[in-house]
Design a protein around this nucleic acid. Structure first.
Lengths: 173, 173
DNA sequence: AATGAAATCGACCAGCA
DNA sequence: TGCTGGTCGATTTCATT
């Protein structure tokens, strides 16, 4: 069996249906889910609890509007580090610790890190870049402004190919 | 007043405290929140409902573990489009519609789009890139593999600078 | 793994500061 | 407008199958 599926203890299509629903919107009543799936409310609850317990559902979070806080500017910044410094893990963590940085990726190739940050203004981005460069081992940075963000689709289930779905459902069920 | 704050109807520090909590973990009881904030359960509920109503909280979602579904490969892909095609909006939406693509950014500069995708394998990434190139108006692509992802900190409140906090709290309260 | 009943918690309402 | 306490409905738990 695929090593990557080791943490996926036999999900069936009911679990998948639940996940698809709550990943997009957790504010659905058990009754609605139960009706849709022809199950009792308790059964749905039982499965949800199990999915939380085994880590398939990692958490329930509220999505807060960035614009409410004036965070209207997004930048993608390439960060290169000095080749002597093998401290990629430490540098990555220090980048994550900076206020304004949302995501940090350590990549293959000559650009070492890619960060995505959300700030209020160009000044704030300049400050942020100063703090990036101040990190020990960081060589140089190069930033691009984002003009438009196409609705972050961070739903895992929506990103599954049909083949991936089938593999999952046929593995045990 | 800052135009960007037009949608932020006078939040006070209690609202901010609630947001910080539920943005990280919505699975916290009203009673716990009420105790922490020295408020009644009803008051917390009242504020939460308001925050949902005015769009500060955009939704409640379950975070699903990508590895459960074998989605262990992340790629950052630069997409350039032909300069004749002014259909950036359409192209961006078509990119978002592709299975595997999580985020799409339209940027300033010579690289037009940056996409972040999560797939199961190199083959799946190749398929995805084929589908990207097949989109009308797409010129060429260039991908980088992500070797390490430093914990996506997608909490807005955690990314606020002290100054931003102060501006918010002093604006009305 | 699923069910129904019992306990607990959240959602809503009327009234009040 | 924001809060309180109380009521009702939903969710969580548990014994049982």
């Amino acid at each position: 069996m695929n090593d990557a599926l080791r943490t996926a203890p036999d999900l069936d299509k009911t679990d998948l249906a639940i996940l698809e629903r709550v990943e997009d919107d957790f504010d659905v009543s058990l009754e609605t889910l139960a009706d849709e799936l022809n199950l009792s409310k308790s059964a749905v609850h039982y499965r949800l609890k199990k999915l939380k317990g085994n880590g398939v559902i990692q958490g329930i979070t509220a999505d807060v509007d960035p614009l409410t806080f004036g965070l209207e500017m997004v930048a993608i910044t390439d960060v290169t580090v000095t080749h002597e410094s093998g401290y990629s893990k430490e540098i990555g963590e220090k980048l994550m610790d900076l206020k304004g940085i949302e995501q940090v990726f350590y990549t293959m190739g000559d650009v070492d890190f890619v960060t995505i940050s959300r700030v209020q203004s160009r000044d704030q981005l300049n400050d942020l870049i100063d703090r990036i460069v101040a990190i020990e081992g960081v060589n140089e940075t190069s930033s691009r402004f984002v003009m438009r963000e196409f609705g972050t689709k961070r739903t895992i289930t929506a990103n599954l190919t049909e083949e991936a779905r089938d593999v999952l459902l046929n593995s045990q069920n």
